[in-house]
């Protein structure tokens, strides 16, 4: 059997000053450039008519169904406020998840040697969501935005849920709430990273065992998982933002 090449951390391709530029960083930038460029191009070419066709129709369908889903979770007013961030999360994660299914991703790369003479392999393209640094970054953005949104809506009353001296029970509950905010970061980051990285390993193993036809059902599964994980990340952020904006109830 051929030897599998599985590396948990992203592989550095070259060095820029003191920073290792990894393949997932480059891919992340490429995904961003693609999304920004596409939206820019589309917004220059918008047409207003009864029957929209082609690319604009598909883009409107995606945006509209996401918007309706968010309205059913958070209501119209809050959806208008949170939509840009949540939709960006969804699209960015969706595209980087689906990248792993393209042929050549994870297989075309550079061979090299490390200091001990072991051969190393660095694929040129690695989906950003299969790199823990990228998912941790996304999780940090998401959790800090939850705090910012909560503070914006409730101002200093927001911190009542964390630090509360009214009675000992509420004080302990406040400490638990602080821990739960921190654990949100870990669970956001690990859920996305684990799912996508495990999918990549699953595809690699099934390709190594039986190269023909056998990986096909797993590819279908990975398309589904990529969509579900992007949706879960976006909707969870929305739900947490929604609860952060609600006033902390005084009496139970």
């Amino acid at each position: 059997m051929t030897k599998l090449n599985v590396s948990i951390s992203a592989e550095p391709l070259f060095r820029l000053g003191n920073i290792d530029i990894t393949n997932s960083m480059l891919t992340g930038i490429a995904v961003s450039v693609f999304l920004v460029g596409f939206s820019f191009w589309l917004s220059r070419n918008l047409k207003l008519s009864k029957s929209v066709k082609g690319v604009q129709n598909v883009a409107e369908m995606i945006i509209e169904s996401l918007y309706n889903l968010m309205v059913s979770v958070a209501g119209e007013a809050k959806t208008k406020e949170f939509f840009p961030l949540i939709a960006t999360f969804f699209l960015y994660i969706l595209f980087s998840n689906w990248l792993e299914l393209l042929p050549g991703v994870g297989t075309i790369g550079i061979m090299g040697m490390d200091h001990e003479g072991k051969t190393l392999f660095a694929p040129l393209v690695r989906p950003p969501s299969a790199d823990f640094n990228a998912t941790l970054g996304l999780a940090l953005i998401s959790v800090s935005m939850i705090q910012i949104v909560g503070f914006k809506h409730l101002s200093f009353a927001y911190f009542q849920r964390f630090i509360n001296f009214k009675n000992p029970m509420k004080f302990v509950m406040g400490l638990l709430d602080i821990i739960s905010e921190l654990s949100k970061i870990i669970s956001f980051a690990f859920r996305l990273f684990g799912n996508i990285f495990a999918g990549e390993v699953l595809l690699a193993v099934s390709l190594a065992l039986i190269p023909f036809l056998a990986p096909l059902p797993f590819m279908g599964l990975e398309i589904f998982i990529g969509l579900i994980q992007a949706l879960v990340f976006a909707i969870l952020t929305l739900v947490f933002m929604n609860t952060a904006t609600l006033p902390h109830e005084e009496e139970h």
């Binding site: 669970s187 690990f190 859920r191 990273f193 684990g194 799912n195 990285f197 495990a198 579900i228 949706l231 879960v232 909707i235 969870l236 739900v239």
Partner: peptide, 16 residues
């Protein structure tokens, strides 16, 4: 789906 995501996160921890 949200509940499944929470439950599944535990499996993902052990997978990682």
């Amino acid at each position: 789906i949200l509940g499944i995501a929470f439950a599944e996160a535990i499996a993902i921890y052990s997978l990682v």
